[in-house]
Computed example of a mutant assay.
Amino acid sequence: MTKDTRYDAARAALEADIDDYLAHLAHVRRASTHTIDGYARDLAMAADYFADRGIAAWPRVATADVRELLAARHRSGAKPTSLARLASALRSFYLWQMRQGRAESNPAADVRPPKKPAQLPETIDVDDLARMLDATPGDTLEIRDHALLELFYTAGIRLAEAVGLDLGDLDLAAGEARVLGKGNRQRSVPVGRRAAAALQNWLAERPGLAAENETALFVSQRGTRLSRSSVARRMERWAIAQGLPVHLHPHKLRHSFATHMLESSADLRAVQELLGHANIATTQIYTHLDFAHLARVYDAAHPRATNRGDTADTEGTDA
């Protein structure tokens, strides 16, 4: 048997288990298409690597093999986030294998990829946001886009949550919307006065675009549910037209919502609930962001701040 033949046989054997796992994610876990596609890419990459080394069954993979895979990916230039996702995909896959009786141990359990450098989420200045949102929309599509922008900022929802909204999820009389978040967790989010007015304007225009029996709140020119990529493109177009000085994407509005809420209220638990975070540790990054803002203010204003460019006191006396 040639090396290519051995590789093909090993790859096919490894792929069979991957296909079963992806079916489990889709039909039992009801994971999103985005999540399933990510697992498919990462596990296919791992299968390629292991098959090339003559490993034809997942139980034969050792912890050292997983570490070597991550090291090889790191040498090829993969980012820490990609390595973390790959390790997580393998850990989850092996947990399923063990539950199915297909593997006795999880070789990825104790493997930790290089840590990614801590990065604070980018936000938009309140005044810049106000100028952008106060612009008057022109045509029907701009009325829809304006309603989306207001909703993102009033409720801090994710992109997938916004495009997944149906008409029945919106209750303007109560000032709230019902969204389906990560892990199929449902929550209610507030809809502020300005967002409600923008949504009312869109609901008046929507029948002219929506296809018959379409339930989506936000629809495209074709009358069907608006896609995530379309939202991102239209949002950037709006920002450029209004002269926003920074790049705009849906998650930046979510970050801005969380930061501005925390700066005003200092209620971390409330912000956690509004964002739909299962773990408050995820929300705590915004406390670091708030401190970074305060530190900049301090450096700019305090007479004893070390970062100020003012001339130091040279008299040498102590109070």
Rank of each mutant, 00 (worst) to 15 (best):
H74T: 11
A78R: 09
L165I: 07
L170H: 11
D127Q: 10
G175I: 05
P113E: 05
E142G: 10
D128R: 01
G168C: 03
A72G: 14
R158V: 01
G156S: 07
A155Y: 05
D134Y: 02
L95V: 13
H74E: 15
Q119F: 03
R85I: 12
D166V: 06
R91Q: 12
L165R: 02
V111G: 08
R91H: 10
E161C: 03
G183E: 11
N106M: 05
Y94N: 08
M98Q: 14
L70K: 03
M98L: 12
R99F: 10
L172I: 08
L159G: 02
L170M: 13
A89F: 01
D166E: 09
D127N: 06
A71C: 00
A72P: 02
Y153A: 06
R91L: 08
D65E: 04
Y153P: 03
E104Y: 02
S105C: 03
P114V: 11
G101M: 07
G156L: 07
L129A: 08
L70W: 02
A78D: 12
V179L: 01
A174P: 06
S105H: 13
R85M: 12
L133M: 14
I143A: 13
L83A: 05
G77W: 04
S88P: 10
D134S: 13
E142K: 12
L83C: 08
L149M: 15
P121V: 07
A108S: 11
W96A: 06
E68K: 08
I124C: 06
T154C: 13
V126E: 13
S88K: 08
D166A: 07
E150W: 08
S188M: 14
R187D: 02
E142R: 13
L83R: 05
Y94V: 05
D169F: 00
L70G: 05
L170Y: 09
R99T: 08
K116L: 15
L172N: 11
G183I: 11
V163T: 14
G183K: 10
E161T: 00
R187C: 02
G168D: 14
S92E: 11
E68V: 00
V179K: 01
L141Y: 03
D128V: 09
A147E: 04
L95G: 10
V111M: 07
K79V: 11
S76I: 03
G138K: 15
L151K: 01
G164A: 02
D145F: 05
T136S: 14
V111I: 12
K182W: 09
M132Y: 00
T154M: 08
L86E: 09
L170A: 13
L83I: 07
E104I: 03
V179Q: 00
E122F: 04
D110E: 14
R158E: 01
V126S: 11
H74P: 00
W96F: 06
R158P: 01
D127H: 07
P117Y: 10
W96I: 06
T140R: 12
A87P: 05
F93W: 09
